[in-house]
Simulated scan of single mutants.
Amino acid sequence: MRVEIDLSTPLHEGGAGGHNRWHPDLEPIARVQPGEEVWVALRDSRDGSLTRESAHASLLETPSVAHPLTGPIWVEGAEPGDVLEIDVLSYETDDFGWTGIWPGSGFLGDLFTEPFLARWELADAVARSEEVPGVAIPGAPFAGVVGVAPSHELFAEALRREGALASTGAEMDQPSAELAAPQWAAEGLRTFPPRENGGNIDVRDLVAGSRLSLTVLVQGALLSVGDLHFAQGDGEVCIAAIETGGAITLRCNLRRNGWKPRFPAWESPGSPAPEGRRYLATTGIPLTDDGSNADMDLNLATRRALIEMLDYLGAEHGLSREQAYTLMSVAVEVRISELVDRPNALVSALLPLDVFED
């Protein structure tokens, strides 16, 4: 099956085939069967507004449309409580990409007061840019945003906890009608921070051959994908990867038994994770034990990821909590996957699956 989109018109100007807000009531643009291979066209994170002709100053004139997503896609038979297992089969990318620094953007934003745009030529599986001369970046394409629709309960909870945090003066994007697509979903959740439904997780390991597991929150799952990257470092520290458009080919399956992750969980085939080993990773965002949202708190995000791993090892491998905690200390790698999408940094805890002998 192919899910085509209208690339001639940006989503916020009425282009068909997608959305840029999370909302439980979005209408699906396609329906797929579990096990069916699906080719999905993807816009770049600024919906084509940056090109080879763009200059540094163009960043200041570019509408903040992130993220234009393709979807939602209805997965037949998906019910709340199921686990949607998304197998990434392949990617295609355009032959042009870009990386932007906006004044004040990213983890070191206080050090950068002027816009800077790197324009990348993507050819022969590497990226090269005249703005960053003498460098060739190997391609490892992945989708930065993959998510299912939030339930009405999660929708309300995310609005509540993020609104409470914003009221303290924390900087973040709150619901807004500006550039919303569809316009009726203007009060929907912004796509910048990752949440329990997935979204902007920016896990660079979601390359071809990987699997992402998301707990289904609404009937049909309502899967959406976007924010294609040709390559990215852990953290995406300046707030942009090598952004590009293209397509993903994926296959969805449903699991009803076993462990069900609260946050996205993923498996990697070993690239760009350490070569030769397959990893299972749990993730976490900065929520306290009572569900309050903190602002980019890596300690809390790590706590959430590790508690998820503790639960996984008990449910899937029958380990006691003491056994699981010991294994985590000697084998699990903790990695910052996303460091800039306020208020939710995302931490991954990676377990090499070859430690199990049976």
Rank of each mutant, 00 (worst) to 15 (best):
Asp110Arg: 06
Asp110Phe: 10
Asp110Val: 08
Asp110Gly: 03
Leu111Arg: 15
Leu111Lys: 13
Thr113Ile: 01
Glu114Asp: 10
Glu114Gln: 14
Pro115His: 06
Phe116Pro: 01
Phe116Cys: 14
Leu117Val: 12
Trp120Arg: 02
Trp120Leu: 06
Trp120Thr: 03
Glu121Pro: 00
Leu122Ala: 10
Leu122Glu: 05
Ala123Asn: 12
Ala125Gly: 10
Val126Leu: 09
Ala127Ile: 09
Ala127His: 07
Arg128Val: 15
Arg128Cys: 13
Ser129Glu: 09
Ser129His: 09
Ser129Ile: 11
Glu130Arg: 15
Val132His: 07
Pro133Ile: 10
Gly134Lys: 14
Val135Thr: 05
Val135Ala: 04
Ala136Gly: 11
Ala136Met: 08
Pro138His: 10
Pro138Met: 02
Gly139Val: 07
Gly139Met: 15
Gly139Gln: 15
Phe142His: 14
Ala143Thr: 02
Ala143Glu: 00
Gly144Glu: 02
Val145Thr: 05
Val146Ile: 15
Val146Asn: 02
Val146Trp: 03
Gly147Lys: 12
Val148Cys: 13
Val148Ser: 04
Ala149Asn: 01
Ala149Val: 02
Ser151Arg: 01
Ser151Asp: 04
Ser151Gln: 00
His152Arg: 12
His152Asn: 01
Glu153Phe: 02
Leu154Asn: 00
Phe155Leu: 01
Phe155Pro: 00
Ala156Ser: 14
Glu157Thr: 10
Leu159Cys: 03
Arg160Cys: 04
Arg161Glu: 07
Glu162Ala: 03
Glu162Phe: 06
Glu162Pro: 00
Gly163Ile: 08
Gly163Thr: 13
Gly163Phe: 10
Gly163Leu: 11
Ala164Leu: 08
Ala164Trp: 00
Leu165Gly: 06
Ala166Ser: 12
Ser167Lys: 14
Ser167Asn: 13
Ser167Met: 11
Ala170Gln: 08
Glu171Pro: 00
Asp173Cys: 05
Asp173Pro: 00
Pro175Thr: 06
Pro175Ile: 06
Ala177Gln: 12
Ala177Glu: 15
Glu178Ala: 15
Leu179Phe: 13
Ala181Asp: 14
Pro182Leu: 07
Gln183Ala: 11
Gln183Phe: 02
Ala185Thr: 05
Ala185Trp: 09
Ala185Tyr: 07
Ala185Asp: 05
Ala186Asn: 05
Ala186Tyr: 00
Ala186His: 11
Thr191Asp: 00
Pro194Tyr: 09
Pro194Thr: 06
Pro194Val: 07
Arg195Thr: 04
Arg195Gln: 04
Glu196Tyr: 02
Glu196Trp: 01
Gly198Cys: 08
Gly198Thr: 11
Gly199Glu: 03
Asn200His: 11
Asp202Lys: 00
Asp202Thr: 04
Asp202Glu: 13
Val203Pro: 00
Val203Asp: 08
Val203Lys: 00
Arg204His: 03
Asp205Phe: 03
Val207Gln: 06
Val207Gly: 01
